[in-house]
Amino acid sequence: MDYHELKEQVIAYSKEIGIDKIGFASADVFGELKARLKRQEALGYQSGFEKGDVDERTEPGRLLPGAQSIISIAMAYPSKMHDAPKSRKGDRRGLFCRASWGEDYHTVLRDRLNKLGAYLQELFPDVELKSMVDTGELSDRAVAERAGIGFSGKNCAIITPEFGSYVYLAELVTNIPFAPDEPVQEGCGDCNICVDACPTGALVQGGQLNAQRCIAFLTQTKDFLPDEFRSKIGNRLYGCDTCQTVCPINRKKDFHHHEEFEPDPEVVKPKLTPLLSISNRQFKEKFGSISGSWRGKKPIQRNVILALAHYRDETSISELIRLMNEDPRPVIRGTAAWGLGKIGTSDCFTAIKDAMINEKDEQVIYEMEKGLQFEKI
């Protein structure tokens, strides 16, 4: 087998099936990453969403015995939405981050990997493969960096020369000994804009993220949002783009190569108040095809309440009162009570006091008390 020729054939085929960039890396242990992950664990900076232990996440041979190389792919997604609806007083809207625009990228990239794998099997019947899209053990970013897709930026994203950091990543571990590509040598230099702009200080320093403080992580949690972050979330319903939008390299980077990633404005920038009464079935029908729906409607609805409180949207008061009194979920009842206090009309405070009489959950009562604190401000 001429592996050089095979590599060229794979590259050519990848372009035919809509992969924007492809790179090849060795399947050696990611030693530097292993040390960094152990530091992250010791510092408590992990999100908890990571799959596998540190060894599994840094040793490709544990995932595919006989692994020789890794194929890394990247697909660009848009940074701008055409005909985006306006968020107006009395008709406020929330926002899903750009990585959740269009069809769930896990589905799209998995399709490309499957096609790539099938193509390899035709050319090399003895091929062994393991594919991963974001939820696998390996770090997509570490693989992409080694494969020359881009460099690791201070915002902890892979930044490609062509598309900036607006790319989805995935990889195929294989037993084919493809020659590795050279890593990209560009870097952020002295630029520190993303670190300075991070709303919660989650970027501890360039290239180091405390996931526990990252808004992208926080919007996906299901419990009460810690107080210090409630004023930071704004109208974000899922994810956060700040460290990408402020990046000078991303300026004017906007690619609409793939119809699957084109956003439906009414889905990714939805009206807030109607989301508070949406059923599970309606939520699945409207949002089920986007990646931002994977945690279900509860965290989204909690974030909706925080966004309405952020706007001090008085048109939502009656709906928030209904939730505070009737919703079976303590996190939603309590957040609604806090949100009413933040909006801060006399009707809000009266409703909180009335609801406290019958409330039994201690956490909800605590949130009601915090909501009433706004009356003293």
Rank of each mutant, 00 (worst) to 15 (best):
E171H: 04
G61K: 06
A216I: 02
L64M: 08
K286F: 04
G371S: 08
K271M: 05
L172Y: 01
P78H: 06
Y119E: 14
A355F: 05
R236S: 10
S47P: 07
L120P: 02
G187W: 07
Q9C: 11
R62K: 15
E59L: 10
V127N: 03
V173T: 00
R322E: 09
V364C: 11
F283W: 15
F261A: 00
I332T: 12
N358W: 15
K21E: 15
G150Y: 04
M356G: 11
I305V: 15
Y45C: 10
K286D: 05
D313Y: 03
I11H: 02
I215C: 04
L37E: 07
F283E: 00
A74R: 05
S87L: 11
A42N: 13
M368C: 09
S131P: 06
E266D: 11
C243D: 09
L272H: 02
A12V: 05
E259K: 07
N303F: 09
I357F: 12
S100M: 03
V331Q: 10
K253I: 00
I17R: 04
F374V: 06
E326T: 12
C188M: 00
I73F: 12
E367H: 14
Q373Y: 13
E171D: 05
F255I: 01
A211Y: 09
I71H: 11
T58Y: 10
E326A: 10
L169T: 08
L306F: 06
K34F: 10
G334N: 02
R112F: 07
E145A: 11
E171L: 00
N114P: 00
L43W: 08
E8I: 04
C214S: 12
